[in-house]
């Protein structure tokens, strides 16, 4: 499977160039992906799928974010709201230049690490596989911890019972003196974990943006087998580019 990946990316390009919603004149845009004319367009074209499909409704829904899990997870359209330009949250005043990303993990619901990216990590305490397992374990336990700790709900269930995505009180970040970890879980159980400099701002929107490019370049890739490690070049380059802009 893995050696066929290089070819898969070009297939992905074709598809993402012709995402429905952009070409409103043509109802069957997916078929137009076989049209060779659009293939060699400049990179600007790739960004188009990430534009909000129909602006006004999305803006209304996505205006307020802290509405609890349902809003955060299922307001899929609000993801698009932040999409137009991969702008980092402004004015976080870290006094730092760009390149604040340390590493990124993507797990599926069964704990398989689909992607591990590393940009700045001088310290390795464990080998890669152990490290990923430990990370998943930490998130799993922190999730049950926050559900049980939740001071606003009366019935919290038992500690350690497996939780469905979005069930109970979740967490979105924690901070230590050397790093900040931001966490997002989507309804399908995909977990995106971004580790950045401790002084970076709120990473919830960047995470949603990353989820957005994941959907565009990985899920919409016809050659991607769900549950297998991500080897989509387009996704990784876009991800790298975006993470560089985070402040």
């Amino acid at each position: 499977m893995s050696d066929g990946r290089a070819g898969s990316n070009s297939g992905l390009t074709k598809l993402s160039l012709a995402v429905p919603g952009r070409n409103t004149a043509r109802p069957l845009t997916r078929n137009s992906s076989h049209h060779p004319s659009g293939w060699k367009d400049p990179i600007k074209k790739y960004r188009n799928p990430l534009l909000p499909p129909s602006g006004s409704r999305d803006r209304e829904e996505g205006g307020e974010r802290a509405h609890g899990p349902a809003m955060q997870f299922f307001g899929g359209s609000s993801v698009a709201e932040i999409a137009p330009s991969p702008a980092a949250p402004p004015g976080t005043a870290t006094g730092l230049a760009r390149n604040n990303g340390n590493m990124l993990y993507i797990f599926n619901r069964s704990g398989v690490c689909l992607l591990y990216r590393e940009w700045h990590r001088p310290l390795h305490t464990l080998d890669a596989q152990q490290d990923q397992k430990l990370m998943f374990g930490l998130l799993f336990s922190l999730r049950s911890f926050t559900v049980k700790m939740d001071p606003t709900s009366v019935d919290k269930g038992n500690l350690g019972v497996p939780l469905l995505p979005g069930q109970g009180c979740s967490f979105h970040s924690f901070r230590t003196n050397t790093y900040k970890l931001s966490f997002m879980e989507c309804p399908s159980g995909i977990k995106i974990i971004l580790v950045t400099h401790p002084k970076t701002g709120d990473m919830r929107e960047p995470l949603r943006y990353i989820y957005n490019i994941y959907v565009e370049y990985v899920i919409k890739n016809p050659l991607y087998v769900p549950g297998s490690p991500i080897k989509c070049e387009l996704f990784v380059t876009n991800l790298d580019q975006y993470v560089k802009t985070l402040v």
Partner: peptide
């Protein structure tokens, strides 16, 4: 959390931000 630190000198979690607390 100290084990997973990307750089040396991590002292563990200072702040955990959950949805409700």
């Amino acid at each position: 959390s100290q084990q997973l630190s990307p750089t040396v000198g991590c002292n563990g979690i200072d702040l955990l931000q959950a949805d409700t607390f």
